[in-house]
Amino acid sequence: MNSMVTTDDNPTAVDVKIDKLTSDADVYALVDSLREASSSSSAPIALDFRSLARARPQRINAHRTEIVANALLTEFAETDLIVHPPSSPNGRKNLERAGLAFAIRQRPPRLTHLETDRQKESWPAVDWGRTWSPFDSNFRQRIFEVGDEPDVLLDGKFVTFLNPHAYAADDDLVWELTENQAGEWISQLVRTRPTWVDSVHELGERKKTQQELIGKLRRVIYELVTNLSYAFCSHNVAGRARRNFLQRSYVQLYVTRGGTNSFDRLHFVAADTGFGIVATLLPKLVRSGEYDESSSELIIRQLINTELPDYGRSSGRGYDRITSILKEYSGDLFLTTGFANSSGQCQTMRAHSQYVAAESSKLRIIRDERLRFRGTTAHVILRLDESNRDDLDKTTV
């Protein structure tokens, strides 16, 4: 995947071309190329996304691309990169949804050089380097104002809160972000999507059902945001000290439209480069004598299946509530989390829990030895077209 190229500004840059990001193999090839290039040369690495999603039907896999975004902020935080954005608007939009635009703008500027190839707009937009604050009244105003000023971060189908943990106490973070901002965005979104509520009901019943739906959607984002309070905790976490630690997080909501015989999907994403679920829960669980650093898969399985013991669930109850809503709406949870153990080695766990109406959930958990993921990315998908709930195709968004 890589080769040596010569440019005027970077005479010995290592070129890494990314033509697709749809499978685990694509992610492994990219990560391996970055490792090989960074270990064998001090030259900058040119990440070339120009061919990505150039054809309109071609899509990237958001969940796998979220893994790449994490790698650019953790394992390769100190790697000198030259970034060539996708040449197509579709490709750039896909990378924005999958957290890669966030990762590029949140990296150290001295190590991240953008080559826009004379494109009219800068990409990622400067706004991807912003931070959210509960005291930033302008941010809330921009979400809900009616105007023509475009903003890739804030619109009726897509909203991203950048580093919400950085400038907010827990109460401000949970209340102001989930209730006053994300909650209001959800309310407006539902009211503009009448197909998400069964139209055969009388008007009063439809309004009641609509309010119930809004309440459930708010609960999902509330529980995801609450977990950010634990992502960067300072209590005794195994392998807490680490080099090149960029404390970054984002909370994202967006809609993907269903086509013929398909369904609309609402996506909730909470991603951080914190200590990871296992390292956060382990100090609460080890005193029972039943858990240690080798219990990663068991802890993740019990978390998703709502089977954690009471003394280990102070930061895990949110997944109980998320699971109940996923079951109701036949949704999906994609979870990737990793932590550095006491010997400094990274353990990465990946889980996909799929809920199908009238059936038991399908849960797949793997320990991914090829990745060095740090932190947690939780991606919840809810299918919200009442008339098409039996159709299921969620591998790519």
Rank of each mutant, 00 (worst) to 15 (best):
V220Q: 05
V220I: 15
I221P: 01
I221G: 01
I221Q: 01
I221E: 04
Y222T: 09
Y222H: 12
E223H: 13
L224N: 06
L224I: 10
V225Q: 05
N227Q: 10
N227D: 09
L228I: 03
L228A: 01
L228T: 11
L228Q: 07
S229V: 14
Y230K: 09
Y230L: 07
C233R: 12
C233L: 04
S234T: 15
N236T: 11
V237R: 14
V237K: 13
A238I: 13
A238P: 10
G239F: 02
G239I: 07
G239M: 06
R240T: 03
R242K: 10
R242S: 07
R242V: 01
R242I: 04
R243N: 08
R243H: 08
R243E: 09
N244E: 11
N244G: 12
N244T: 07
F245K: 12
L246I: 15
L246K: 14
L246A: 13
L246E: 02
Q247H: 15
R248T: 11
R248I: 04
R248H: 03
S249N: 14
S249T: 10
S249R: 12
Y250Q: 06
Y250T: 04
V251H: 00
Q252Y: 02
Q252P: 04
Q252V: 08
Y254V: 04
Y254D: 02
Y254M: 08
Y254L: 07
Y254R: 15
V255N: 15
V255H: 15
R257N: 13
G258S: 01
G258P: 04
G259S: 14
G259R: 11
S262F: 12
S262V: 03
F263W: 05
F263G: 03
D264Y: 08
D264C: 13
R265M: 06
L266V: 15
L266H: 09
H267S: 12
F268I: 05
F268K: 00
F268E: 02
F268A: 02
A270C: 12
A270W: 02
A271K: 07
D272H: 13
D272C: 06
T273H: 00
F275W: 15
F275V: 14
F275A: 05
G276D: 09
G276H: 11
G276E: 10
V278A: 00
A279I: 08
A279Y: 13
A279S: 15
A279F: 06
L281C: 11
P283T: 10
P283G: 07
P283L: 03
K284F: 14
V286G: 04
V286W: 02
R287H: 13
R287L: 07
S288Q: 10
S288C: 01
S288F: 06
G289V: 02
G289S: 00
E290M: 02
E290K: 01
Y291H: 10
D292I: 05
E293A: 11
E293L: 09
E293Y: 02
S295M: 02
S295E: 04
S296D: 14
S296N: 13
E297L: 05
L298E: 10
L298G: 05
I299E: 06
I299K: 05
I299D: 07
I300R: 00
I300F: 01
Q302Y: 06
L303V: 11
N305V: 06
T306L: 01
T306W: 12
E307H: 08
E307A: 11
